[in-house]
Structures are given as structure tokens and as C-alpha cells.
Design a protein around this nucleic acid. Sequence first.
RNA 1: GCCGGGAUGGCGGAAUUGGUAGACGCGCACGACUCAAAAUCGUGUAUCGCAAGAUGUGGGAGUUCGAUUCUCCCUCCCGGCACCA
Length: 1180
Amino acid sequence: MKQYDHKKIEKKWPPSAKASAGQAEKKLRTYDHKRIEKKWQKAWAKKKAHVVKDSVKGKKNEYLLVEFPYPSGNLHVGHWYAFAIPDIYARYRRAQGRNVLYPIGFDAFGLPAENAAIKRSLNPRTWTQQNIKYMKGQLASMGASFDWSREVATIDPAYYKWTQWMFTQFYKKGLAYQKETPANWCPKDKTVLANEQVVNGHCERCGAEVEQRMMLQWNLRITEYADRLVDDLEKLDWPTQIKDSQRNWIGRSEGAEILFPLQFPVGADKLKYVLLHGFKGDVSNYDWLKSELEKLGHEVIVPHLPNASSPNEKEWVEAILGATTYDKNTVLFGYSLGAVAAMKALEKLDTKIAALVLAGGFVDPKFKDHSRNFEKKFSWKFDAITITSKVGHIHLLHDTTDTAISEDQARRLSECLGIPLTRVEAQKPHFCGDKELVLLNYLTPSVTVFTTRPDTLYGATYIVLAPEHPLLRQGFAGQAWVNQQEVNEYVTKANKKSDLERQESKEKTGVRIDGVEAINPATGETIPVFVADYVLGHYGTGAVMAVPAHDERDFEFAKKFGLPIRHVVLPVRIDEKNPHVPGKEVVFRNLVMAIVRNPQTGKYLALKVKNPQWTTFVIGGVEEGESLEEAARREIREESGYVNVKLVRALGGPIHSEFHAGHKGVNRIAHNTTLLFELEDEVREPLAPEEAEKHEVTWLNESEITRDRMSHGELDIVLNRMRTGNDVHSGQGILAYSGTFDSMPSEEAKKAITAKFGRAKKTYRLRDWGVSRQRYWGVPIPIIHCDTCGAVPVPDKDLPVKLPEVKDYLPAGNGKSPLAKAVKWVNVKCPKCKGKAQRETDTLDTFVDSSWYFLRYVDPKNKKSFADKKKQSAWMPIDLYSGGAEHTTMHLLYSRFWYKALYDLKLVKDKEPYVRRMNRGLILGPDGQKMSKRWNNVIDPDDIVAQLGADTLRLYLAFIGPYNEPGSYPWNPDGVAGVRRFLERTWRLQDKIVDDRRNSFSRPGPGETVSPEGRPEIERELHKMIKKVGEDCAELKFNTAIAAMMTFLNTAEGRGLTKQQYVTLVRLLAPFAPHITEELWASFAKASKAKHAKNSVHLQPWPKYDKKKLVSDTVKIIIQINGKMRGEAQVPASADKEAVEAAARAVVADRLAGENVARVIIVPGRLINFVTLTIKKQIV
RNA sequence: GCCGGGAUGGCGGAAUUGGUAGACGCGCACGACUCAAAAUCGUGUAUCGCAAGAUGUGGGAGUUCGAUUCUCCCUCCCGGCACCA
């Protein structure tokens, strides 16, 4: 392993002072980076060379963004790689005539600052600002063209005022909400962490194991944007790797929600249903619903609501309250105006009832079609708190086909009650069908499951609830199960475990909920209900329908609990060798295949068929009334004579096969099930003569069971099941045992079954973004908690909410932020009611700070808005965003979400902030490991700058590999010396400038870059270089761009070059090594009369290459014989095919002697290939 | 397990639409300069072979006059997801 040898480098570099003193008399000074770099950095700063205007006449704006650093206190090589290399691109684009914004700032809030501050008993602000100051000095040494006038720091109140302002905007729009959520709690950092900050159950920062705690947290509704965050990726010019990572992270699954009604057949209290009809309705509307509910054993009351054609609130409410007594077993159902009346009645009710189901309800009497006469007879204010407090369970149903109630009306109801809206499709619009099944489903206790495989519904043989499922906490309408205690124990145990602990063992555990059964809506069968921790509470609906035949997890669970396995999606095997013959009758048959193993020998029973010749297992049709096993035993006896066999198991479910049954002359569709038997003894019955004639018995080793030998198309599936014991078919197939859906392909069946029994639904892995942090050093969440008004956003005029000074930055450890200790700051008046109120004491996640910083660069000093709209449109969206791979799923997703939310608030004009994104690589230590003090392999960029110069460091990092690929590159000390050599040779190349006739230094005329006469080869090399460097820079392949300049240098050193040619090289090198090139340019400018020469080299336009100069008079042609290189020939560029062939034949004449050339392939200007007859013959 | 990316000398890496594999740099070897060393300059440097030549881009097949490049299968490495229904 190579060790980084400091001494070796220091000995080598810098070149001794004595040597340069000795050369002092020489016309040229030695390249002295120390003098040059400081000099020009000062000069640029003085001239404000890098201040960017928002518009420059005749130039297009371009926004190049790099992730702003965290002010850790010291600049490392990674920072150089992150900032100095994109600077090459910024300078290159400027030379190409773009007005380039290349800003920088500091992401300065966050844990490390605070931890360091606690350790050194310093104010985090002081500490952070010191770091910023120091790092700015270091950044200056890069010679990067940052516009410092646009510097942004997230800790600046003028910045975080807008962070807070945006948060209040989001809150007002319902995008920010507070919720008691299980939070990832780091016991060491004493704060809540985002999911993204938890790596394998441990804190990303300190490594401590993360605990789950229930806490009241602020969340941002990023899940509402999940679809757009996935779909809009498509249009972005981003590497697929980043897009795929984001898609994985969001984890969108498309499937269906299906409702399974529950029955409590044993020992449960019966429910009392009160069904309220609507405007112009009457008691008879619910005949069907009533009888169905009564069938389940419940009591049903349908009160008569007076004057249904001209109703008023008072009469209806009285009728409802008088209809019966209400208690904890009552379920109140209200339809349309009945829903309104139900809520009104609840406001008055003095007991708590089990459940409230509202269908087609509203709180806003504005209808899609026409107005109604009751608008003024009801009051349209609702006491949501009272209503919801009187009810254990609420369902809000909206019919998506409704012709009277708009979706918007329904949503208002949902917002009013704070209960999510359930969108359903009624049998007839506005739930007007005779048999509205959907109503029954929601009136009965039920479990809604999410599945991506609705096609397997008929195979669902049980239901599994996650331990967190609300049904287990609340029950439904007071219903109970028999083994309540056992269930509770399991749930408590599971809830104690962290996600990580639950995953420790994949061994399935669970408890059957006794006395409760679900009804499979497709088969009508009752199926058991379990609670098991392999189902996740936060994903989908927290409940699954288990289909053991087609899901491995369910299969495992079913095996353990002895649950039925029903195969409903059959894998398909179509025999290509023996396909269906068009026109022939299609005949269906159930087949059974028997694999008989002899445990003594380990061999398998097979039949050698004589005509046609093939080998098969015992196989035959299942006769009417016969079980599979009976049929298999019969076939074994008939075909092999063996009598005593023992059934081991079925090898999974049937396989759907299609083939042409030649001997019967029909097209066969067969469902073929394979049973595995063991031979018990050798007892055989004699075969019937016609059987014996057809085939003979043979025994095969396992290795002899191959598709070559055996004719079964299903063999691969069967063998796999036999060997692995995995009988689950989780792929696609054709439906069977699925009622009217039989023989439908599974993809089609997904849609059909969803349409009939459920509704299409998307679910995401992504969860809402928890932004509360119980730490000091962050942006205070701009919310005031008032006892009467609830959470109130801080009014715009009171922003920013400045971070108060406290003495003690240590988190309390009880979940309270240190801000809670600033009592004066905390206690305020409510902005709404002026009553007593307290400030929110949590601070925002720092990912919030960095979600919009790029917008502030555009207009960093604005006091009226976060960024002026005109300035935004001058720069946004960002043309190229360069950063680290570690931000692929967090920062990049959060800031996209943030930007989209701003877009919806009409605060920004684009849907996406970053047009193009690239992830850079990683610089490793010289030993190939990550740079770390622990390994003593850290390269300090300050040392390199001191010894070798900033230009060398820039050039080295650019040369190490392609910048736009996230590779990892070990630091090579000799490699750095190598690029330093390149700069010195470039410097000394001045010695090789030869007399060019014009010997002047002026702007090249059109079509002319330099005076080329007399040196066409160098001129050609020069133009090749201009082309290559330009193209490679555009693609961020700085390594090959530098290689092209090195190649030119190698040629030019040998042959000499003109001053014009030299200066062109300097201009190409300028973005890479801004200091040395500025120095060289200036020294040439002294001798020049040209005006433009007085300007900086960095203001010179990018050299243009001349296509005509790229071509040479002669070209090298590669000569191949049968595709192998056999020689080369120089031919005139103008040579035609005949001439090329003649020249080539001359070169390889001896090789072609005696060969018949069958074909000659000529690639103009490149290659000629002689194909000889012998090869040709082999092919023909 | 699923999704994506990758594998080229001693090392970092090049190679246009399929057309000389190894550009450029490092390292190494030899030579020049020097009393010497360093620096610098020059020559060479995929492997085997004295050579002619043969082999060679993770492994195996295929398409093609010709494959690092296209197709199929496999191995390994990196990244994302993972009891996600």
C-alpha cells in the first residue's frame, strides 16, 4: 500500500530558491506561484472582477450552483473539488459569452456548531461566524470567481426571516401541520431526527441507536407532492442514477384499496343503527340497507323526518333525537341533508355514540345543479369539536359521480370536521341506487386493505392488521373480540419494539383475533383476522389481505398458522414446440402430474414413451368427482403398476399450459397440478397390455431431469418448487377459481377486480417531512400557541422571530428545546385574540434552510420579498447544480418539494428548480481510504497551495477523473507533481516561441486565430486542441480537456510555436489555472498594442477552431485482413476508393499473395479491410 | 430480493455512429547532463516470445468483414430501496 510521503514531496517541491536565483539573468522569470497567485487575487478583488450583473446586453444569463458549505471551520480537499472545479466551468461559459452567476454562501445552522459551542462554552453564533470568516480566507485562495457580493448565510436574520415567512405561508395553505407522531429520537443528541437522518436504526451524526417516541411535531406535507415529485423527474436532465434513487425513495406503488366487512359473530354487543334519509327522501329509501344490517343481527331504526320536501333544522333534529335512545352502541348514518341534520343532532346530544357515517354530506349549501329550498332553514355553522367528541368513529363518504354535491363541497365538510374524505363510487349518482353496497360496507365494521395485487383477491384467505391499526385501539363501535387480552399483549409488545428490532427476525409472529371474522368481498367467505408485526402500520392502510399462494410473506405466515392456500393466478406455459393449431377445437382439462421418488435410491419414476419418443412423468386427466390425489394414484397404478405410494405434498398450484394434443387432434388448455409422492414398496400390479405397449418405466437421477430429456414445458417451475420448497407464484399469470374473472390475464384482472370490489389507489413509502428539532441552533418555528386560537402563525410584520439569547444551549432532554428556557421570549400575546400565548420553542430542521437558498442568491439584499420576481426570472431555474451524492435523496427531494410548494403559492414561476444536476465524485486519501484524521491520510489543501500553488491543485483535481461521474479518486502525490510539471513546461514554452511573421499580438481576424504560415502541423494540433478542450469542457470532462492541452504541449515543445499559438494555449488554460494564465497574458499584453490585451485573460472570448485546419493533406489508413490489423498506409486525403485499395494492397502484398479477396470494406479516411475467400466460405 | 450504475496495463483514467484498445498523467526501466544527487531532457513501457507471431478490455455464448462498444447468460463491485403488501 502506498503511503503519502510528506518528506518526499517537500523535498521535491518547491524547486529550490537557489536554482531560480541562478536563472535570474535569463529573460524569463521562473514560475513562482506564490507571487503570482496572491498578486492576481488582490487585483481581481480590487477590480470587483467577479461581481455579476443581473443582465448584460447581448449575453444570456446562466446560473451555476454548487451546494453551499457548512462552516465547519476548515476547508478540506473535498471543498476544493466541490468549488474550484465548477469554477472552471463557470469561467469557460463566460468565455463563451454567457453572463454566469456562480454564487456561494454558508449553510450555517445545525447540530455540529451547537455541539462544538457547548464543548468550548462559546456562543454558537460566535463560533460559526469565526469559522465563516476563516473559511472565506481559505476560499479566496482558490482563485474562484465567486460573486461575494451575493453571499448568503442561513443564520442571518435577514435570510431566515424568509425561511419563517415561507413556513407561515405553507401553514396557511395546510402544508404544514402539527401532529403527535412517533419520532426518531436520538438519545445522545437529544433531538428528533428525520427518517433520512436515521441510518440502519442509528443516528447519522453520532451513531447512537435511535428510539421511537411519540411527540407533537411539525410536519410538511411532502407526501401530497409525491406524485409530482416522481412524474416531473422525467423531464429533468439528470443522471438516471439520481432519478432512480429518488423514485425508490418515494416508493410509489399503484394498487387498490379493498374493503373487507367484519363480523363479530361471537359474544359481541349488537349495534343499533339510526338511518337518516335526505331532502325529499322517506323511510322506504333504506329497506334494503335495513334488511342487510338486520341479517347481521343489528337493530335498525329509520326515523321519519317531517316535511321532507320543505324541511327545517329544528323539526329534523327533534325527530332524530326523539327517535330512540342513543348510547355507545349506536351508529348514526346521515345521507345528504340527513348528514347535515345528523351533525346538528350530535351538537345537542349528551352521550357519546359509536360511529357516525355521512354519505353525500355538505356544510355549504351551494350545489352543482340548482339551489334547494332549505338553504335558509338550516344554520351553516358547525361545532366540529363537539360533533367529533361525541363519536368514536367517523366515515365521510363522497360519491365521485355525484351530480348535486361537488367534490369541493365534500372537501369543505372534511376540513370542517378534520376527518379525511373517502371517495367512493356509488351505484347511482348521489347514493341513489336500490342496493348501495358501498354504504353497507362503511356502516358495518370493516377493514380496508391496500394491495398491489387486486387480481389475487379470490385467493385472500385471511386478513392481517398491523399492531398500530386503529381498529385495535378503538375497536369499531364498541365491538370486542374474545381474546382481547392476548391481542393487547401482542400489540403492546410490538409497539415497544423499534422498526429495527421488528426486522431483526423475519420469523413471522402474530395473534389471531378470536370472535372476529372478515368477509372476502369477492368470494363471500368468512376469513380469519390476525394481528402481526410483519404488516407495517404506516404503510398503505396498515392492513393487508393475505394471499399465501402469491405472496411469500403471507405464505410463510399461512404455513406457520396452518391457513388455507388458494391458487388463483396460474403461471402460464405455452409449448412453443407444440403450439395450438389454428382452427382446431380447444378442449380444457384438469391434469395431474405425479412425481414419485424412491427414497431407497433417490431416483424418480418416469415413463419412456415409444411413439412419439419422449420421457414423461406419470401424467393424466382428472376424472369427474375424483380428487387430485385419487387421480394421481390411479394414473401411477395404470401407467407404472406401482400401488403403494405416499403423498408428500403438492408442488404449488396448477400451471396453465397450452399445447396441441397431437394424438387427440385437439388444442389443449390444461391446468396441471404436480403432486410429489414417495414409493413405499416395490409392489406392482401388471400393466394393461395397451399401456405396456405405449411406454416402459424408467428411473431417473435428479440430474437427469432436464428439459432436454423431459417433454414438459412446466418442468422449470416444477423443479424449482421441488428443490426450493417455495411454492409461491408471485408473478403474472392467468386467473382461475376467481368466478367471472377466470382465464383473464392478471394485468387485466387487476383493473377489473379493482373496479368491481375496490378503488384504485396509490401508496408511497415516503412519509411527511418532520421538521421540528428540539435544539437551539436553528430557525425558530414562527408559530404562537394560544389556548383559545390554537396554533397561530406569527404575522408577517413580526418576522423574523429572532433566535433569543440563552445561557444554556444544552437540550433539556425531556423533548423541550433550550429555547423553552428563554421565558421572556416564550410568553407573548396571541396575535389574534391578544390573550396569553406561548411561542413554539422547537427550531426547524436545517434542510429547511437549504431548501431555498439558491433563490436568495438571485436577490440577496431584498427587504421586501425573498427575491424579486424579475430577478428570479433573470436567473431561475438553475442551469446546472453540482453537488455530492449524499444529497441525492434528501436535500434534492426536499428542495424540489419546497420549490413546488412555492410554485403552487405562485411565488416562483417554474415547477422545478434544477434543470440539470450532476453528482461529483469523492477524493480519497493516498492510501485509497476515506480521508480521516484516524488514518493520518488527510491532505490539507492549504499545504498544497503553499507548496505547489492553487493553479496546480485546481488542475490536479480536474485531471483526476471525469467530473460528472461520481467515482472515487485516491490522491496521488506524484500526480500533483505531474500537473505542476505541466504548468512549468507551459511557462517555459515561452522559450520555444519562434519568429512568426507578424510577431504582433492582436485580436485575430475572422477565420483566423493565429498566423499559421510555415507551421501547418502545429496549427492543426492547435485547432484539434481548441475543438477538444471546448467539447470536453461542455461535458465537464476536464480530465480529457487537460490531456488535450498536454498533448499539444508535447508537440509544441518539440517543434516550436508562434506567439499567437502560445497565447491561444494560455486562453484555453485560463479557466483551469486562472493565476498563471493571467500572469502570462499580462506579460504578453505589455508588448502588445492591442486594446483588448490590456483586459484580463478571463475576459477574452473562447478561441474558435477552424474546421478547415483540422484536416490534413494525407490520412493514415489502417489496413486489416479479415478484421485484423496488418499494416497502415499514408494516402492523400482526396484519394478515392480505388487509390486507397491500390495503396493498401501494395503494403500487404505478401500477405495477400495466394489469397482470394472476396470482399473489400473501406471506411473512408479510416480503414480498409480485405475479406479473404476462406473466411467467406465458412460463413456461406 | 427489487431498481440503477460499473468492471479496460503496476495505478488514475482515454477510445467518434461498431473501425489502430491503452490517449494523457503517474509509476517503472534505460540513457544524457552532474564529482554525485535532485531537478531537467531523451528513449522505452499491455502480456507471452530472441523473433516472426500469438493473446488481450470481469467470465461464457451470439450478431458482424470487424465488438471495450450491440444481444443473451453468468460472476464480482458500487449506489438506492427492502417484511412497503
